[in-house]
């Protein structure tokens, strides 16, 4: 199965960019997960925690409000702010 290409973009910069097998994000209508070959999908994000399962384990980000665009092989999160939780 192919990987997802993930980008987390804030007005300041591209906060994170990489590949992942699974992304979870807080949508306005509840938390959702994206796996590869997801149907094209667009939603509003609420401030919360985004989990990205990458090759080097699960990364967690505290993100602000924004929106997410998910396609078959990519996920773009446009958010006000983004900080990695270490």
């Amino acid at each position: 199965m192919s990987d997802l290409h993930v980008e987390i973009v804030t007005p300041r910069k591209v906060a994170w960019k990489g590949t992942a097998t699974d992304v979870q994000a807080p949508g306005e209508l509840g938390e959702f997960g994206v796996l590869p070959r997801h149907i094209p999908f667009l939603t509003v994000l609420q401030p919360g925690i985004v989990k990205v399962r990458g090759p080097s384990g699960v990364l967690r980000f505290q993100v602000g409000a924004g929106f997410a665009e998910a396609g078959p092989d990519r996920v773009v999160l446009l958010v006000d702010s983004c900080d990695e939780i270490k």
Partner: peptide
């Protein structure tokens, strides 16, 4: 084919 959640119009508002 895009799925909008919530609806396209609400999304536009956001």
């Amino acid at each position: 084919d895009y799925v909008y959640e919530p609806s396209g119009e609400t999304l536009l508002g956001a």
